[in-house]
Design a protein around this nucleic acid. Structure first.
Length: 576
RNA sequence: CGAGGUGUAGCGCAGUUUGGUAGCGCGUUUGGUUCGGGACCAAAAGGUCGCAGGUUCAAAUCCUGUCACCUCGACCA
């Protein structure tokens, strides 16, 4: 590709709306153009990167016996009504009507389509197991797109669906897929991507993992044990606590006028935050009932755990009028029966809690759960914290970090095959429901994540495996006859040798050419200049600055070929 | 959905307080001089100031509405 012929434009100034590195560079470097909220057109440079990522994904999916298919982007709503998700999913599912007035949806994921495709096709146990996948456009009407390609509404996704006759077979295949994902991320130049135990969310199913690139700009909070290999998304990280023993005190009512927040009460009574019992109020979406969650004062409620326990969407309760609870002084003792009350596990860790007295201006001290409340069910509903106890190894080794979710895998079980009536005939001639797994990777998000992981102040540093081109050939002074002739010949020879070359043949100054090359992020750069040719050399440099050499011009071609080959091999040298 | 912010040339911005008919830098085009880290000189093109309505002799500027985009939040009773 010659630069002079390419549809591209770069910007010196950081666009006003960009906050994170990948977004800044991908706008400044002319990688993409915003079309609407969370919707982008991709320029050739980005299409080349995503095509390479897609090929790596395709190779790895095929390695685990995946069969590539293509589902439709637009589906009849009736298909989604079969699984129940037409009504279960909120407004992120874009619904519309066709000219006949039929309900239609834009595909945001394709479990329904996968079951639809397979259910009349895989009739016999002999056809199992199998996996089908596609690489295709998804649309999710996200409440808030952000960060360039990190969170968009329309995006390309690889989504795979496996079908099995036994749980053991699903579990085994799930692990194969886990390994394939590790290979994909390693080959794309981000071997640091980790898998964490995750909540299955709207997908349903029990076991799920997310693949996360750890970075401060990540949208998810991750819980990582620094002592063992326990890793989980904050959303469903298990909690474990030390138990503090103490002499049991009397239950006493104390005046705490105007003390409504945990901090105020703790300070006023001279107690630690963890001696308080905090009440957090929620409203269930299913029946609008108010739920009060009691949790230790130093902890926070994990709403995902709460949602899963209640099997209902929950919202912070803003209005406690007409509930008979005394805002600011809510306590478990003598609380109104109009609300549902839940107790977090953390309340088992100590005695003598301070809690609201359900009376304006008063709290109770010395609350002993067993003595004062009887046998109450303690549920794990809290968020874990930095330095907490690891639920696996038991050490105080929990650390919190943030991550971008670049992929996920789920064991779905029979959620879709069951609801959509998929059956096969087993060895005994009996009708059975197969079980499923599903496996996704966001292609554009992965590209942006690689940029997040590999960039410097001047632009992205693409790994050789997914770089838009392998070599950037810069002709400094393309108007110089000798330079032009040498660069033209080098371009020709490299192309003939199968090397992907972007040839900057513009008559621009060195500064412009180098800045643009930095933004392009091609891993190997060859600079042909009058000065160099006078000394009989061309310059060969790596984008990551780990190499810069002057090579005899007669040997330059061979040197570049060898270097590209070595850098490619380095990307493929993974031990998974 | 809640709060805050911003909409003026392809990009970055000034101008809005105090109404007077739009400007700067980058980029683009043309000509010339330069040439190894975003060169210089000269000339030129490019904007119904997000949109709609209102006030006024006069609106980018004031008022009302609306749309779009950005950031934070969606939890401590």
């Amino acid at each position: 590709m010659k630069f002079t012929q390419m549809l591209t434009k770069r910007f010196k100034d950081t666009p006003a709306d960009c906050q994170i590195a990948s977004h800044i560079f991908m706008i400044r470097g002319g990688y993409m153009k915003n079309v609407g909220n969370g919707i982008y057109s991709l320029f050739p440079i980005t299409k080349r990167i995503t095509a390479k990522i897609e090929n790596i994904i395709r190779e790895e999916m095929n390695r685990i016996d995946g069969q590539e298919v293509l589902f439709p982007v637009v589906m009849p709503g009736s298909l989604w009504k079969e699984s129940g998700r037409y009504d279960a999913i909120g407004s992120e599912l874009l619904r519309f009507r066709d000219r006949s007035g039929n309900d239609m949806v834009l595909g945001m994921t394709h479990e329904e389509a996968a079951v639809h495709l397979a259910r009349e096709t895989a009739e016999s146990y002999q056809q199992y197991p199998f996996m089908i996948y596609q690489i295709q456009t998804k649309f999710r009407d996200e409440p808030r797109a952000r960060g360039g390609l990190i969170r968009v509404r329309e995006f390309t996704m690889k989504d795979a669906y496996s079908f099995h006759t036994t749980k053991e077979d699903l579990e085994e295949y799930y692990m194969r897929c886990h390994k394939a994902y590790e290979r994909i991320f390693a080959r794309c130049g981000v071997p640091e991507v980790i898998s964490v135990k995750s909540d299955s969310g709207m997908m349903g199913g029990k076991v799920a993992h997310e693949f996360m690139l750890c970075t401060p700009i990540g949208e998810d909070s991750l819980v990582v044990c620094s002592n063992c290999d326990y890793r989980a998304n904050m959303e469903n990280a298990d909690c474990k606590y030390d138990v503090l023993s103490a002499d049991i005190e009397e239950l006493t009512k104390v005046a705490t006028p105007e003390m409504k927040t945990i901090e105020e009460v703790a300070t006023f009574l001279g107690k630690d935050m963890n001696a308080l019992m905090k009440a957090v109020a929620y409203q269930k979406e299913t029946d609008d009932k108010i739920v009060i969650v009691f949790v230790r004062g130093d902890l926070e409620v994990n709403e995902v755990k709460l949602r899963n326990y209640l099997k209902s969407e929950v919202h912070p309760a803003l209005d406690l009028e007409n509930t008979d609870v005394c805002a600011g002084f809510i306590g478990p003792k003598g609380i109104t029966e109009k609300v549902q009350v839940l107790f977090d596990m953390s309340l088992a860790t100590r005695e003598n809690f301070v809690c609201g007295a359900n009376e304006e201006g008063f709290h109770l001290t010395g609350l002993n759960i067993k003595r004062d409340l009887g046998d109450v069910e303690l549920i794990d509903l809290a968020k874990t914290t930095e330095g907490a106890i690891c639920p696996v190894c038991g050490q105080h080794a929990i650390t919190l970090t943030r991550g971008i979710e670049v992929g996920n895998i789920f064991q779905l079980g029979d959620k879709y095959t069951g609801s959509m009536g998929m059956k096969y005939i087993d060895q005994n001639g009996q009708m059975q429901t197969p079980i499923m797994g599903c496996y996704g990777i966001g292609v554009g998000r992965l590209a942006a994540s690689v940029c997040e992981a590999h960039h410097d102040n001047y632009g992205p540093i693409w790994p050789m495996s997914i770089a838009p081109w392998q070599v950037q050939l810069c002709a400094l002074r393309a108007d110089d006859a000798e330079v032009r002739a040498f660069a033209d010949e080098m371009y020709e020879k490299l192309q003939n040798a199968g090397v992907e070359v972007i040839f900057d043949d513009r008559p621009v100054s060195a500064g412009v050419m180098f800045s643009d090359a930095d933004l392009t992020g091609v891993p190997l750069r060859v600079v042909v200049s009058p000065k160099g040719l006078k000394n009989g050399t061309v310059e060969v440099a790596k984008r990551d600055k780990s190499m810069m050499e002057k090579i005899e011009k007669d040997q330059a071609f061979d040197f570049v070929i060898e270097t590209v080959k070595a850098m490619k091999a380095e990307c493929e040298n993974i031990n998974i």
